[in-house]
Nucleic acid binder design. Structure first.
Lengths: 140, 140
DNA sequence: GAGTGGTAGTCTCAAAATGAGACCAGCACT
DNA sequence: AGTGCTGGTCTCATTTTGAGACTACCACTC
C-alpha cells in the first residue's frame, strides 16, 4: 500500500516538529508553515491557482470559469494570492481597462506539490465519496 | 486497497479538464475533485491530519497540541475527517471513556501528497513572508 | 461525603467570513 | 439614447467560526 513510502522518502522524525518549526520558539499557534498552508487552503485559492497554472486569465474569464464564486470573493482571493506572491496582476490600458492575472514563479513552484494533491483527489475521490455514503448510512 | 497513488501521469493536457472532470458533464461547480480538495482545505483539517500522521492522538491531546482551536471546531473537523474516511475514531471503555483518533489507510495515502505541500511551505515560507511585506509596503 | 480534577463533548451567544445582489464610471457599438 | 462590457466596490443577509459556560461520569483526595 502507499503508506510504506512515508518514512523512507521523507524522513520525518517528528512531522509536527516540521510543521511547527519556527523562529519564535515553540508556539504552535503562529508557525510560518501553518501560516503559508492556511493562506492557500481557502475555499477558492487552490481552484484559482489551478486555473492560472493552465494559462493567464482575465477577471471576467475567471468569474465565468468558476460560476459559483461571488465577484466579491474572486476579488479578495486574487488579492490575497497576489499579496502572498503567487499571482501577478497586470492592468492593460484597453478601452474598458482589462486586468490579467497570472502565476508568478513562486506560484508555479507552489503549484507543483499542490498538483500532487489534486492528482490524489482525482484518483481517490470515489473512495472518499464511498466513505461518506457508508458513514452516513451507519449514522442513520 | 482502493487507495491509488501512481507516480505517473504528469502530462496534464488541460489541468482544468482534470479538475472539473466529472460524470455530470461539464459543470465546474460540482466536481468531485474539487469536492475532495475542499474537504481537506479547511482551516484545521491539514493540521489535524498532520498531527495524526505522526501517531494516534486522543481528543484532549489534540486540543493541547493545537492550542488555538476551539473544542467545537476540533469536534467538528474530526467528525468531517472521519466522515470522509481519513480518520478512524475509537472509543475505549476506560473509566472516563477515552477516544482515540488515528489515520486510516486512505488518510495516510492522502497525507503523502499533502506532505509535499507542507514541505514546500517549509522551504518557501520566507519567500511568502517577503512577498507580503513587499506588497504591503507598495500599497502604503 | 464534599470537593477537585480529568474524560469528551454539547449548547448558546457573539464575532467574523462569506454569499447575493445592487451600484459605479468609462467607453464602444447600434 | 440605450445597451453592453470592463473590473470592481458597497450593503445587507446568511453561514461559519470563536469564546466560554455547561453536562455526566467516575476516581481520587480531604
Amino acid at each position: 500500500m502507499g503508506v510504506a513510502m512515508d518514512s523512507k522518502i521523507f524522513n520525518l522524525k517528528s512531522k509536527l516538529e516540521v510543521y511547527k518549526a519556527m523562529p519564535g520558539g515553540g508556539n504552535f499557534a503562529d508557525c510560518p508553515v501553518r501560516d503559508v498552508i492556511q493562506g492557500i487552503s481557502g475555499k477558492w485559492s487552490s481552484l484559482l491557482v489551478m486555473a492560472l497554472a493552465e494559462k493567464p486569465y482575465r477577471f471576467g474569464e475567471l468569474r465565468r470559469l468558476v460560476p459559483d464564486i461571488s465577484q466579491r470573493m474572486l476579488t479578495q482571493t486574487l488579492y490575497d494570492l497576489q499579496r502572498d506572491g503567487y499571482v501577478h496582476r497586470e492592468v492593460f490600458p484597453t478601452k474598458p481597462p482589462s486586468v490579467e492575472y497570472s502565476l508568478t514563479d513562486l506560484g508555479r513552484s507552489m503549484f507543483a506539490p499542490l498538483q500532487m494533491l489534486i492528482q490524489w483527489a482525482e484518483l481517490n475521490h470515489y473512495a472518499v465519496r464511498e466513505a461518506r455514503v457508508a458513514f452516513d448510512a451507519a449514522q442513520a
